[in-house]
């Protein structure tokens, strides 16, 4: 899969509380992008945003050569990105890493997202639909305002919700939702904060269900060169950027 370093123009920017939905268009034909892959975004402007920021791909429009990112403002880099205006240019390296393994037709899939970790599951659910697979989605947040674009996710499959404050869906963590007692799945895919992914991985392991998780370790190069973003696996330290970010839980020493 060929990687590109490409300038994109911001064509739409829509705020969602602490997050922003950024639609970006390239003059170049986009390479093939698998759900779960990520981009490295260049943040110009200040000495404290020296390195690129790794951000998951929220959506892809092949016909328009567009990529959409759902960016949560967590630090100076992401705050700077959120402040960009329509028409501004953003340089990205893409596509990076390995995405989710696509299920076989007929397999029952559960996509579990927590907080901003729901972002890559949008493109994944869309691609699954295009392949004739309707996944089940389980999305969790601290409160209702964390569950961005919920109506858009619901188009791709039955969608369950948990919030820690009970403002929407069932109260509690995703692992406490009743769907775990009422339904069985062939494959579980997870993206969210590490403690949440570990809890879901434990649940999947107990049930003996195949499970992939998407990690977001601190990284510099995004290409497997600097060896900073390593995760401890059964094969030793491996780069999350190159061998991940998606890993089968059996490979991780969790």
């Amino acid at each position: 899969m060929t990687k590109q370093i490409t300038d994109f123009k911001l064509v739409e920017s829509q705020g969602f509380g602490r997050s922003v939905l950024m639609r970006l268009r390239s003059e170049q034909v986009l390479p093939a992008i698998v759900p779960g892959q990520f981009v490295q975004v260049c943040v110009d402007g200040s000495p404290s945003t020296y390195l690129r920021r790794p951000i998951s791909i929220h959506d892809v429009d092949v016909e328009q050569n567009e990529i959409t990112l759902l960016v949560q403002q967590v630090g100076e880099g992401t705050r700077h990105l959120a402040a960009l205006k329509v028409g501004d240019t953003i340089n990205m390296v893409l596509p990076l890493g390995n995405g989710f393994s696509l299920p076989e037709k007929g397999e029952k899939c559960l996509l579990v997202g927590g907080g901003i970790g729901i972002a890559p599951l949008y493109y994944f659910a869309k691609v699954l639909n295009e392949k004739g697979i309707r996944p089940t989605l389980l999305l969790g947040g601290k409160s209702q305002s964390d569950l961005l674009r919920l109506a858009d996710y619901q188009r791709f499959g039955e969608t369950f919700v948990t919030t820690e404050d009970g403002s929407l869906g069932e109260k509690g963590f995703v692992t406490m939702h009743s769907v775990w007692r009422n339904q069985d799945f062939d494959k579980i895919y997870v993206c969210g904060p590490k403690p949440m992914m570990k809890a879901v991985a434990k649940l999947a392991d107990e049930k003996g269900v195949w499970c992939e998780v998407s990690l977001e370790n601190l990284m510099a190069c995004g290409l497997g060169a600097c060896l900073c973003c390593v995760e401890d696996t059964v094969d030793g330290h491996v780069c999350v950027c190159k061998e991940g970010p998606v890993f089968n839980i059996r490979r991780l020493k969790w």
Partner: peptide, 23 residues
């Protein structure tokens, strides 16, 4: 060599620190 444990990098003003440890 397995190198040092994670985390191995920190961004600093106009630079970065690493402690990969020759993995």
């Amino acid at each position: 060599r397995e190198g040092n444990p994670y985390p191995r990098m920190a961004e600093t003003a106009s630079g970065m620190l690493n402690c990969v440890g020759l993995q």
